[in-house]
């Protein structure tokens, strides 16, 4: 029997190795799609000046932009400079890609982590309440609302939230990071501007947690350990929170990992609606301007986040369930 952290470290190492071919394939695929597209980055870069430019100028520029050669050569060149920390120049924002990410990543991480934590905590609480009395009024309300929220697009929820909270009730700002007329970012203004986007993102992720916890806990309520606990005369609260919830939470840990892509998707839409200065809204700007260097870097970044999420879920699962061996994952 080795220490649990040794198994965890070995699992992390194996996942790191497995991530290399996945990332290579993702980036190669991006270059293949870009090569197949009718779009020419050189023409975009010089804009209307290019109408009179000679073929020689265009060729030199193509060389400088790293867009000459086949897509495999471009891919290799991109990988080599990315390994050296140079992700290229964003065509839309006229800034180095690394700088764009550095300026915006923190805001996105803040938004996503607040929303995710709220969704997990609120989802667990509502799921347990609903599972306590299957078929009761509370269960029916919570389940139906969850299904409805699951079907609703986050951008639509975001707009409705703006209408309700920013226009009708006028309690929260409709977007941005600072109040109109001020440029200074203070903690108070960030919290007020964060409330709506984080709330909407949390609400759009909530149904999955509610339904999983509800299912897990209501299944666990029929299992022998819970029956045994009841037979011993333990209090209902101890049975519910100490026994049923503990085994019912296991599938939720896996869900945390698999929800990362959906969280990024939600952030893409929510950040755009609320003009949140994160990387997700930069993605949309990059796409609108067909800004390949920025789009490529952001795609790789999100793939990294997804792989890290999967690893985190497996590590948590192994820690929470002593029957699971990290070395067998």
């Amino acid at each position: 029997m080795t220490a649990p952290w040794a198994g965890m470290a070995r699992l992390a190492g194996r996942r790191l190795l497995a991530a290399v071919p996945v990332l290579a394939l993702v980036t190669l695929g991006m270059f293949a799609v870009a090569a197949a597209s009718p779009f020419d980055p050189v023409r975009q870069y010089i804009g209307s000046d290019g109408l009179g430019a000679s073929q020689e100028t265009l060729d030199t520029l193509r060389e400088n932009l790293g867009t000459s050669g086949t897509f495999v050569e471009q891919w290799w060149a991109w990988l080599r400079s990315a390994a050296g920390g140079d992700l290229g120049q964003s065509l839309a924002l006229r800034q180095p890609v690394g700088q764009v990410i550095g300026e915006r990543l923190g805001w996105s991480v803040l938004l996503c982590s607040v929303a995710f934590v709220v969704a997990i905590l609120l989802g667990t609480a509502l799921g347990v309440l609903a599972a306590r009395r299957p078929g009761g009024v509370l269960d029916r309300v919570v389940t139906s609302v969850s299904y409805t929220l699951q079907a609703a697009p986050p951008f639509w929820l975001a707009l409705l939230a703006i209408w309700l909270f920013a226009l009708r009730l006028d309690v929260l700002p409709a977007g941005g990071l600072t109040d109109t007329g001020s440029d200074t970012v203070t903690a108070g203004s960030v919290i007020r501007h964060l409330a709506l986007p984080a709330g909407v993102l949390a609400i759009s992720q909530l149904p999955w947690f509610v339904l999983y916890v509800r299912q897990g806990v209501s299944d666990a309520l029929h299992e022998d350990p819970v029956r045994g606990a009841r037979a011993r005369g333990l209090r209902e609260r101890t049975v519910l929170l100490g026994h049923a919830l503990r085994s019912g939470l296991l599938p939720v840990l896996t869900l945390i990992g698999t929800r990362v892509p959906e969280l990024i998707t939600g952030a893409l839409l929510v950040e755009t609606v609320f003009s949140w200065p994160g990387i997700a809204s930069a993605t949309v700007r990059a796409a609108t301007a067909t800004d390949f260097p920025l789009l490529a870097a952001l795609t790789v970044l999100s793939a990294l986040a997804v792989l890290a999420g999967n690893l985190l879920a497996d590590l948590l699962y192994g820690l929470a369930d002593p029957r699971v061996d990290h070395d067998e994952m």
């Binding site: 071919p21 993702v26 795609t299 793939a303």
Partner: peptide, 13 residues
């Protein structure tokens, strides 16, 4: 590989 990139982001690309 296809699950590693969020679908909407791949679609946007």
């Amino acid at each position: 590989t296809f699950t590693a990139v969020p679908h909407l982001l791949m679609g946007i690309f």
